[in-house]
Nucleic acid binder design. Sequence first.
DNA 1: ATGTGATATTTTGTATTCAGAATTCATAGT
DNA 2: ACTATGAATTCTGAATACAAAATATCACAT
Lengths: 215, 215
Amino acid sequence: MPIERRPLREQIREELLARIDRGDFVAGTDINEAALAGELGVSRTPLREALITLAGEGVLESNQGRGFRFAPVSRKEFRELCEILAALEVLALDSSDPAHLRRVAPELLRLAREFPDRVAEQQVIERHDDEWHDLLLSGCRNERLLDLITSVKAGLRRYAHVLAGDETPLEREAAEHRRVAELLLAGDHDQAAQALRDNWVNGMERMVARIPSAG
Amino acid sequence: MPIERRPLREQIREELLARIDRGDFVAGTDINEAALAGELGVSRTPLREALITLAGEGVLESNQGRGFRFAPVSRKEFRELCEILAALEVLALDSSDPAHLRRVAPELLRLAREFPDRVAEQQVIERHDDEWHDLLLSGCRNERLLDLITSVKAGLRRYAHVLAGDETPLEREAAEHRRVAELLLAGDHDQAAQALRDNWVNGMERMVARIPSAG
DNA sequence: ATGTGATATTTTGTATTCAGAATTCATAGT
DNA sequence: ACTATGAATTCTGAATACAAAATATCACAT
């Protein structure tokens, strides 16, 4: 097996995203490069490379002379990201191999049915949700689109811990996933795409109220 | 008036994109950082920052230990980018203020009518096309989406000089822009969105044949 | 002539250093 | 007491230095 050899900047980027998932950082706070680099055990150079990448993805903001800060969360941006992802995932579904979709539909259905119980911890739920979406898009042949979706979803990660702990929406989420899977199983592609869009829009409206924001 | 003070990495990024527009670089070629930095009169540090940003946008590729290279062009990727941009611009149109759209429709129509003559040079045509699209999306309130569109369009710039010199499609392009503008003027939002999508798809098919590619 | 292996060179990836901008702190003046 | 001014400090942005990996060169054997 080939041992993993990836640029430090990528590892750092993922570590930072993982920490964002864990809610380690407060949105709006600015980053002290030297301190963070020391904490991670790397030099400022690859750290800054990772920060620049994350700024390009909208996870961070940068101001001349003032360095980087965790982009503040807002209801407006959350809606914007959800709308973008709805459109992109629907496009990905349109760009998918129909045969492949039919093939994975049973698995999608199974995953949707065994949606984690409400007592499960947030981490498990998120991982499960990601797994479902990954499988859904696994037949998309538009590689640039898949990259783009991954990148935009990085921006959504900042909202994960804000939204953690809300249990009621899970049942609906599961139901909607089930519905998408069933429509794919039945071969009704257009309806499945519509259901997927609904899932994003409903999810958005369900969650947006929990975001502390002026907008 | 405030003096312009922007990070070097951004200026470098734009300079590189401008050179790509001019066709200065051959796709697939790898970049010698020291040489390019010297040519630009900057050090490797901000140059690498710009390269990393461009790699995140898909303009460049990076391989561990092997540095950066200009991402090769392909018909497949060109189609992928056009499909993505079609979806994103349609979404942007949906997210636009209808009143604003009606307000700018006459200007859009005027721009479409005075589409540069076929004798105009490529640069002029591109700038004109960009201007039209910028105005079209000027009422979009989804800021993240506008950023994303800009970023994805950077990837398309690599195809500009490949496609330069083809004059016949221009008339159709102008006609389609005119059609979008007319539909907006009439307030028929849905039809305008559909026409915009058609413009992307038709444009894509018109141009894809000119791309030298195995795919 | 061709392939192989050792060595030299180049180039990247990362660390460190340096200069200048932003911020903080202290002090003087009102 | 409060504001304004200026020095000290901290931090970023950029340049330089260094180490390791990749590539090129060349000698040598087949």
